[in-house]
Design a protein around this nucleic acid. Structure first.
Lengths: 342, 342
DNA sequence: GCTCCCCCTGCAAACGTTTGCAGCCGGGGC
DNA sequence: GCCCCGGCTGCAAACGTTTGCAGGGGGAGC
């Protein structure tokens, strides 16, 4: 048969199957509305002509787009990239298109992205710590930020600090410096609270925690934060994330302070980067893939059934590598270069 | 006026402006087909009711989607993420949606993505070293792979090796190990050729180049490659990319070989990672943002005017940091170099 | 002053689905 | 044996644009 020049339509299939186009449509999208026999005839015809529904036409009448949008502040940051990857993988499996918007963490841009995407997708997952959701006209699930009325998927920030502090305490550290994240971050404020609670508790009383001023959640931020760590006299530091931790590591190295012998460092996020530092970074890994998949799932639920449980909290886990060790006495002879570690 | 519950359509605007819907359509998409006065009336009405064209309807009749697709093997790799970011930024400016597909470097998945995206976008940029473009039914521009018949944007692989080797040679190195990338990569084979050419040339004759077997373009790949570097007796190594270089760095450290004193290392890509290694990595930076923007531009040209110039080659540049220095001679009497390299 | 043309605008037909409605047919209850 | 009901399928009206075609009006050329 001479195949038409244009892609086959519902009508082509219908003609071949000897049914009405509407029946073809139903056989595909509401299978149990059509008799089994008819359905199989239709399906054969669909396969025979290689029919694939036209998305625009479907969208136009149904209003659905079969697409979701993802908003991130910086796709170049592996933390966000990993989440996007997970969302994308699952979405592809369901034949959902994924539109992406990188906002550079600019609030205006975020608003614009929210508005633009709203008109092109069924729903949006916003993976960004600071968002004004007002511009959205579609369901949104937010990752790593909790707010009343919006369904969100977050990682347990309290668990992060507990995991880090407990690990350090178990090693024998009694003076721990915590470098804080940018004040605007939801996660940063949660951690501050967690620390406050911890300090007040019995187990927390055993260690002295020095809360350092907020530093950028970047390599440079960590580098700059080292001075505060040094000044605090702590034998261990917990960074806001792995990037910061990496910065801390090189700053310590440059200052001639060896890790983990003279200073223990624990990061947070569990990026690939953490395996590449030297020494490899002990870190509290966030369940990045799970975060993405869950967010995607919550969005699907939200679209299908309307608002459901509004908060999902995922647990991080500790990955012990080589930047943490029992403290050594803070004696003054830190000038001794000594042999190479290991 | 009571705004309708649904978003305003062309008809709403037309009614308000006292013209025919077709005129509104033209005023928006082909402005010079309508009289200036009419146009301004229409535009006022558009603004007044807050009209935004319905993309599905537009798509359905025009066939255009105002979207482009981007295919990457691994969005988690900052190299690809940076390119995506650049594409996305420019596209957003032109009100183009960006669909993303992460294939995990799986050829089947690539084919599938190509086919799926083809039905949802106007054109595709494929940022992946190994692609079978047959499944695409839309214009494609390919990044970092050159092939007859497809318009591609690449970075000058020969320049990369020349930049690296020349830098090392200028420092005084005469034995250089270069660790190769995976054989399937276009860029890897281009570099092999470039090295062959270089070796044959006059300037290349001054240095001995040890071509190491292909290693994965990863941190682990680099780490594993160190043994070969050591065995080669070279005083400098050039890695296939920054990830490899980072691996090389820690392997060298673990082997007790200091960088750059005893071994110089140069990477390639210019990722943020390169600033975080210790010491900070000297690397040949690829113009990542430019790569993305150019690819996007070529795609736009391709869509607007059909096949144009088929190959665009972008130049990398050397970023000297702290992993390269003049060679020392461990077996001989060490002469202190009186001058510092520039 | 008339004609011819060119701008501009209106008209209506697509584009390919989905979906409410109605009709047909067969079976089961009485 | 009749009626009613329910399961399937056909019918046609949307959905909101774009665009070829035609027509009207005004200006310029003669």
């Amino acid at each position: 048969m001479a195949a038409a020049d244009r892609p086959p339509t519902l009508h082509d299939v219908a003609r071949r199957a000897g049914v009405h186009p509407a029946t073809v449509s139903r056989a595909l999208s509401k299978p149990d509305m059509v008799a089994a026999q008819t359905r199989s005839i239709v399906l054969d015809a669909v396969a025979a002509v290689g029919f694939v529904p036209n998305r625009s036409a479907r969208q136009l009448v149904s209003g659905r787009t079969d697409a979701i949008g993802v908003i991130v502040p910086d796709i170049t940051n592996p933390y966000f990239a990993a989440i996007v990857q997970a969302i994308q993988g699952d979405a592809r499996r369901d034949d959902l298109a994924v539109l992406i918007a990188d906002t550079g963490a600019d609030p205006d841009e975020e608003r614009r992205a929210l508005a633009t995407l709203s008109r092109q997708v069924d729903g949006i997952v916003a993976v960004t710590p600071i968002t004004d959701l007002a511009a959205a006209t579609r369901p949104v699930v937010q990752v790593n930020r909790q707010r009343r009325g919006v369904v969100s998927v977050v990682v347990d920030q309290e668990a992060i600090v507990v995991l880090a502090i407990d690990h350090l305490a178990a090693l024998g550290h009694t003076a721990i410096a915590v470098v804080r994240g940018p004040a605007a971050y939801w996660s940063a404020s949660r951690r501050d609270h967690a620390i406050a609670r911890l300090t007040a508790s019995a187990s927390g009383a055993a260690v002295r925690i020095d809360l350092l001023p907020p530093s950028a959640a970047t390599f440079e931020g960590g580098r700059a934060a080292y001075e505060g760590v040094a000044r605090s006299g702590a034998t261990a530091a917990v960074a806001f994330n792995d990037l910061q931790a990496a910065g801390l590591l090189v700053a310590a190295h440059e200052a001639g302070r060896s890790v983990p012998d003279s200073l223990s460092v624990v990061g947070s996020d569990g990026l690939a980067l953490a395996t590449m530092t030297s020494p490899p970074l002990t870190t509290v890994a966030a369940p990045l893939e799970d975060l993405g998949r869950t967010a995607r799932q919550r969005l699907a639920d939200l679209l299908a059934q309307g608002p459901g449980p509004t908060l999902t909290t995922l647990r991080p886990h500790l990955v012990v590598r080589a930047t943490t060790a029992p403290p050594t006495r803070p004696d003054r002879n830190r000038h001794a270069p000594g042999e190479s570690p290991t």
